[in-house]
Amino acid sequence: MTRVAMTGARGFLGWHTRLALREQGVDASTVAVGQEYDLDSARQAVSGSARAVHLAGVNRASDDEVRDGNVLFATQFAEALRRADEPPSIVSYANSTQSINGSVYGEAKLRASEIVRSAADAVGATFEDVVLPNLFGEHGRPFYNAVTATFCHMLAAGERPAVVQDKELKLLHAQNAADLLSGGIPLTMQPSLEVRDTVSGLLSRLEGIARAYAQDEIPDVSDTYQRDLFNTYRSYTFDTRTPITLTRHADARGSFFEIIRSHGGAGQSSFSTTVPGVSRGDHYHRRKIERFTVLSGQATISLRKMFTDRVVEFAVRGDEPRAVDMPTGWSHKIQNTGTDTLYTSFWANEIFDPEKPDTIAEAV
């Protein structure tokens, strides 16, 4: 598979799906829908793709806008499929568990599924109806995408969220949803990736994560749900908690400072020397937690949020130690900008597995 066509590429789930595709070495062709829809452009984007993924939808608007918007997007996507010179062999649709609850949004998602399925059948493609529960993940839009995004945003801002209605949630991290939609993992794995929690339980976990990170510590990330919640939370703290200033103690004997305190889970520490003018990195992670700390010398750490031009740079020095935690979905590198050898400590929350490195080459 070399190319996937996708609607909703600029949305929350679209961003995560593009991260997953980039790891697979697959290009994503954007299919614009709504007011930006152009049949010829959409047809060309879909034609020749191995898979077409329909993500675009409307979930926060008036009843009419929700109903009409979801049906319109599905109709436009279906038209592009039917008109493609070389239709994809697989069509994947991001459906919702709400499609059976009788709500306006649920009925709109169900109708959109029927429209896309009909077009897939017409062109001889396999239709995958991926029914997704509540999604959470990095850079979700608070007060819009999900309660997790709202809680993270408020906690990062020092506010205290309140549980208005406590109920059980079925949750799925957006990177897992992206793998399902992009064909990175089989749909049969979805039940094992979903997590059940209550609204109050979710908030309690996030409050514990926020307390630990406020002390510059890594919370317990020994299970994947906790790790994914931590990665989600810290995506809302990047501008305020980065870099982390470390306390350096120095006397006639030399100097000492702590690099990291981690409350649980695996971990691996590494050390490198880098000659002046040379950089290391130029990659991103989808799930791995990674911390850079300069021990001696001076450097610039550069980070770029994937699929954007936003680059953030931090000047760091060994005699004024500051740690930088690399946000997931951001390409990053460190460059020796001094005249002496650069000594750097690298910490990751998992032991490196060459079969599953979660280190995807991408220039900052």
Rank of each mutant, 00 (worst) to 15 (best):
Q24C: 12
R43T: 14
I218L: 15
A112T: 08
Y236R: 10
A323P: 04
G264W: 10
D38A: 03
S118N: 12
Y144H: 12
R111S: 14
V116L: 03
N134Y: 13
G124F: 03
P142I: 01
S182L: 03
S89Y: 06
V33L: 04
D121F: 08
A250T: 15
T232R: 00
A212R: 14
R280S: 13
R141Q: 06
R10M: 04
F73I: 08
R67K: 07
H283N: 11
T273W: 12
A32C: 04
I115H: 01
F230D: 07
M326F: 09
L229T: 13
I334Q: 02
Y284M: 08
A210V: 07
T344R: 08
Q175G: 00
Q165E: 12
S302T: 15
T17K: 02
Y284P: 06
N336H: 07
D220Y: 05
A177W: 02
F346G: 03
G264K: 14
T247P: 14
G184S: 03
S345R: 04
R227G: 07
H54P: 02
Q44K: 11
A162Y: 02
A125L: 09
P161I: 01
V26L: 12
G137E: 04
F230W: 07
H153Q: 10
D121L: 06
T273P: 07
G318H: 03
D38R: 02
T293R: 13
E217I: 02
V71S: 09
A56D: 11
Y93D: 04
S200V: 01
N145V: 11
V66S: 02
T328M: 04
V311L: 07
E320D: 15
V147R: 01
N70F: 03
E138V: 11
T232C: 02
T30K: 08
P88V: 05
F256A: 11
I90E: 11
A78M: 03
E313I: 01
E159Y: 04
N231I: 13
Y343V: 06
R60E: 09
A299D: 10
G329I: 07
M1D: 11
P133H: 07
D63T: 00
E258K: 15
G208E: 12
R234A: 07
A78W: 01
S269H: 11
Y233V: 09
R141P: 00
V275I: 14
A108E: 09
L132N: 01
L295W: 11
W330H: 06
G140V: 05
D309G: 15
T30R: 10
D340K: 13
V131F: 07
S99V: 01
R310Y: 08
G297F: 10
F352G: 00
L203Y: 05
S204T: 13
V53K: 03
Y213L: 12
E86N: 09
V123S: 08
P219I: 00
Y225V: 09
D239L: 13
A50V: 06
P88M: 06
A178I: 00
G281M: 12
R287A: 14
V31N: 03
Q76C: 01
F136W: 02
A120D: 05
H16I: 00
E194K: 01
L55S: 08
H263W: 10
G297P: 10
A361M: 12
A84N: 06
S235L: 12
V275P: 04
Y93E: 03
Y93V: 06
V195H: 02
P354Y: 11
G267L: 13
A20F: 04
Q98R: 14
Q24D: 13
D309T: 12
S29Q: 09
G208K: 09
P276F: 09
A177C: 01
D340N: 13
